[in-house]
Design a protein around this nucleic acid. Structure first.
Length: 658
RNA sequence: GCACCCGUAGCUUAAUGGAUAAAGCGUCGGCUUGCGGAGCCGUAGACUGCGAGUUCAACUCUCGCCGGGUGCACCA
């Protein structure tokens, strides 16, 4: 080992520290690519076939390849099991061992890989493990300071346009914990795509027309009558109260729809009236003419529309205003809004245009026969001549494309509609193969309460605001012991509460259901958002203390130790190595649509830092050695930077104090 | 009934087909004359639901069974 030469670098200068590093090649994917290139040369396999992993166990190096085992199975050596007993089977060990030896000697002759790799070893049943040069690790540390907030990002999807649709709340109904979950996942996926260099379009689709709205309006009207409350009076109330009131209206309407046949008919009729009211609203608001006639037989009068028009338009705008407040708190800014009242018309037309070829009439409705592709039949336009969710989402695809010429369209929803989406995408592929093939549906798990499924019909729901406020008050309790000022508390509590909630959603796999239990799900310690935020705050605090003693900004270059002078300990090495994997992790999280991989990584990094922090002093007053202190400050600062960048990709803000 | 998803430590979860299955909470024990204890170290706890198969290698892929969830024509 050449530990004593770890920091040997030509560019080092005792006055300026490291100089000229700005000219260094960016190390994003650099080490990894170098090794893959060398493996391609040594084995003759394609780049895509090379499987290079970052082992969790550090004794297996910085990178590890199972390539010998791949080569072995490709080498057409008959399976020993299938050979006759009298033949002497070639043992695996001999073959893989020979292959590994051969490959490694080719690698060692490669001048390029020498630049980044310090040691190559064969281990286990045929793994080849690579250790990076220590000065590469230090270069990477410098790179972090060089790139700051951009560290970890890449340009692998630079020319790609990706639309991400998520959250999808419904006006006139609550914004509940399920929407919060969808928003959290979607925002993180969007940011991960951006980290790969893609241009992202955030799309918000919301149900401002449909039977759920009819139920709400019906219940709302009834409740207002009972409470003897006029629309103006309702409008005087706080926004939160109005939203709550409308939610209660939905419960009433929904119950009645199930239990009372006459009321059900009324609500179904009201549904069409709402579509017509929405068309009038668009005409008055934007001068847009309807493109679909929902009432070809003139069954609905102007008076009928007038009756609910005001209520519909006002209630709708209150809901949207409320959603916007929540988005602002959560840190999401949508680029495009797609109300069902608009995309429904487009979808309706889309269906009619393809009637006979893709869709067919059946029992008064227009359907898509999914059976022809192994799926099931779904209704796109119902017997009341209204587009269903199927047609709406179908119309959404070209509408989004009109706004943003996407290469990829990701739609995030609950997984209970996975089957529905298979049918939808199948239909879309028939009509518009380009858009159909670009569309990817991601069904996330459902948020459940310990008592069972959530239901806004029975009122058994947890709203986003309730949970936010609840967690915030938990954070406030802890903050009482902290020495932050009163004025800081509010914003810290908000960030920590949101961090705690978002992290608890993101740390598990996307497909998993989440049993949401206040006491169990929301932790402020252990593997949690606040733990990462706390660790970040700690790095900042140490940095500030160092500044205090020096009276000037930290100069990262000068923090670097001089050559020959230091032998880093294992905690320091562990941090250096973890830093190098950041962009690989981002890439993997983005490609697999798995923010939880990033969570794992950040948690691991924070743990390593906290171990380092507990074992070794950082400030000069503790190390009694300026160079050592400088180096540890650089590690501290880099940890903070990576945590901050990583948390950003999860949609979590990192306060400097907490 | 059919289809899809899920069964990993007491609980909640992790693990691009790879090496000794990894954490948090909870248990039990320890760490503050030192940079933030929302922290750190240690301890016990798993035949990865059961049974076959594919593979050099299976928590991961295939088949069957058992258990749970969701969906299956006019809700979204």
């Amino acid at each position: 080992m050449d530990l004593e030469r770890i920091f040997l670098r030509k560019e080092w200068n005792s006055e300026k520290g490291y100089s000229g590093y700005n000219n260094y090649k960016s190390y994003k994917f650099y080490m990894r690519d170098k090794i893959i290139e060398a493996l391609v040369k040594a084995t003759g396999l394609e780049t895509g076939e090379i499987h290079l992993e970052t082992p969790e166990n550090e004794e297996f190096g910085d990178y590890s390849s199972n390539i010998t085992l791949q080569l072995f199975s490709k080498s057409q050596i008959p399976n020993p099991k299938s050979q006759k007993k009298d033949q002497s089977p070639i043992t695996n060990h001999q073959s893989t061992g020979q292959l590994a030896q051969e490959t490694v000697s080719k690698l060692k002759a490669d001048k390029e890989i020498e630049k980044v790799v310090d040691k190559i070893e064969i281990a286990g049943p045929g793994f080849i493990n690579f250790w990076l040069k220590k000065d590469v690790l230090v270069d990477n540390l410098i790179q972090i300071d060089n790139e700051k907030d951009k560290y970890g990002r890449s340009e692998t999807k630079k020319n790609k346009k990706v639309s991400v649709e998520f959250t999808d709340p419904n006006p006139f109904k609550e914004f509940h914990i399920g929407h919060l979950y969808s928003n959290t996942i979607g925002e993180s996926l969007a940011r991960l795509q951006e980290a790969l260099g893609a241009t992202v379009w955030r799309a918000d689709y919301f149900g401002d027309a449909g039977i759920h709205v009819a139920k709400s309006i019906w219940g709302l009207r009834k409740k207002m009558q009972e409470d003897n409350l006029s629309l103006d009076q309702l409008g005087q109330k706080e926004l939160k109260e109005r939203i709550n009131y409308m939610g209660q209206g939905y419960t009433i309407g929904s119950d009645v729809y199930e239990e009372d046949k006459d009321a059900k008919k009324e609500i179904e009729r009201l549904n069409t009236v709402i579509y017509l009211a929405a068309q009038r609203m668009w005409k008055e608001k934007e001068g847009r003419e309807p493109i679909v006639n929902y009432d070809p037989e003139n069954k609905f009068s102007e008076e009928e529309i007038n009756e609910i028009y005001e209520l519909y338009v006002k209630g709708r705008s209150w809901s949207l205003e409320y959603f916007e407040q929540i988005y602002a708190r959560l840190g999401t800014k949508f680029d495009g809004y797609y109300p069902e009242s608009v995309v429904g018309e487009i979808g309706y037309k889309y269906v009619l245009d393809n009637l006979g070829s893709v869709f067919e009439k059946s029992e008064g409705a227009i359907i898509y026969k999914g059976e022809k592709v192994g799926l099931h039949t779904r209704v796109f336009i119902n017997k009341h001549n209204l587009p269903t969710y199927e047609a709406k989402e179908l119309g959404l695809a070209p509408k989004k494309y009109e706004d943003f010429k996407y290469d990829e369209s990701i739609i995030v929803t609950g997984n209970e509609i996975n089957e529905y989406f298979k049918v939808l995408i199948s239909a879309l592929k028939e009509i518009n193969p380009k858009l159909g093939n670009a569309t990817l549906h991601l069904g996330h798990g459902m948020v459940r309460l310990p008592e069972g499924k959530m239901s806004s019909r029975t009122g058994k729901i947890v709203t986003a605001e309730e949970i936010l406020d609840e967690v915030k008050s938990m954070v406030f309790k802890i903050l009482e012991k902290s020495d932050v000022t009163e004025s800081e508390k509010e914003s810290i509590a908000e960030k920590v509460a949101i961090g705690s909630i978002k992290y608890s959603f993101l740390k598990t796999g996307i497909g998993q259901d989440i049993i949401f239990d206040f006491d169990k799900s929301l932790s402020l310690e252990g593997n949690s958002g606040p733990y990462l935020q706390y660790t970040y705050a700690r790095t900042q605090s140490v940095g500030k203390k160092a500044l205090g003693t020096r009276q000037k900004a930290l100069d990262f270059q000068k923090l670097m130790p001089s050559p020959y002078s230091l032998v880093p300990n294992s905690e320091e090495i562990a941090l250096l190595r973890t830093f190098t994997h950041f962009s690989d992790i981002i890439s993997m999280s983005a490609k697999n649509y798995s923010p939880n991989l990033l969570c794992n990584y950040l948690y691991d990094l924070a743990q390593k830092f906290n171990l380092f922090y507990n074992m070794h002093g950082i400030l000069e007053q503790r190390t009694k050695d300026k160079e050592q202190s400088n180096f540890r400050l650089a590690l501290t600062s880099a940890t903070g930077q990576v945590l901050k960048n990583g948390l950003y990709l999860l949609g979590i803000e990192a306060p400097g104090r907490m």
